[in-house]
Design a protein around this nucleic acid. Sequence first.
DNA 1: ACCAAGAAGACAAACTTAGTCTGAAAAGGA
DNA 2: TCCTTTTCAGACTAAGTTTGTCTTCTTGGT
Lengths: 137, 137
Amino acid sequence: MQITRQTEYAIKILIELAKSPFGELIPSKLIAEQQDIPGMFLQKTVQLLSRAGLVSTQRGIQGGVRLTVSADKITTADVITAIEGPLALNLCLSPGYSCPNMADCQVRRILGRAQAALLHELQQESIADIVEGKLAK
Amino acid sequence: MQITRQTEYAIKILIELAKSPFGELIPSKLIAEQQDIPGMFLQKTVQLLSRAGLVSTQRGIQGGVRLTVSADKITTADVITAIEGPLALNLCLSPGYSCPNMADCQVRRILGRAQAALLHELQQESIADIVEGKLAK
DNA sequence: ACCAAGAAGACAAACTTAGTCTGAAAAGGA
DNA sequence: TCCTTTTCAGACTAAGTTTGTCTTCTTGGT
């Protein structure tokens, strides 16, 4: 039950972007070096963030990646969702899933509560909080 | 970021055991039928629960599985730990892991908070709660 | 036109998960 | 003691996921 490495990369990418003034274009190669992420894999990750609307990219010389949402509006939950899809602690908690006894399934209910607690916390934490170190314990 | 199917099986096994009087031996074959779990795989799962001290088993004719801890003392967190090992939302949150800049790693800190919130909720929820349906949202 | 970036998708290696198979060991009864 | 029932243990396998790489294409600026 872990986030994937790619999700961790995504968080680091956003942190790196948030260190520069909002909207500034940063070439992905530079991000890769700063955060020690394999170049090609980083690009795929940026694309997921881009499709989620968190960043935008520009091609060509002087191209790169930039935030389209301010860092204090991007939560950890947003990043996880962008990379891994909707948070689901169990298959039966995925949107669109259905099973015969879903209505009165106690396992589903109990895991749903845990998931809600996790999600609530993840939605409190923004990229800006991470960068600014606002999480003193 | 999901619990494994095996963990879900484990929860169901414990629920099934908790339906009978405490300490009663239930043959694993019966549990498999009741909860629709592949027989061999269930046995492996029972073994993990047994090594974690949550159940004990008896071989031979009239053998089976029984709870060794009362259902209201077994939390969802216990089950996940028994099957998957210590809860870790990210590799760097696993016990025994170390990386150079672990002390001031903001990613680690933020995920640590989320993990603590999740763990707290999981530790509130017992198998007895599930069986008795005490979770009416 | 040329070059520096990102876009896209095929591919592959490594790992994890879910499950099976086979044989052994133990408990109890005949 | 022998037989049956049941768990124990480990090897094995098939499928899926993760984490990348490689190659080719497209775009934008100079």
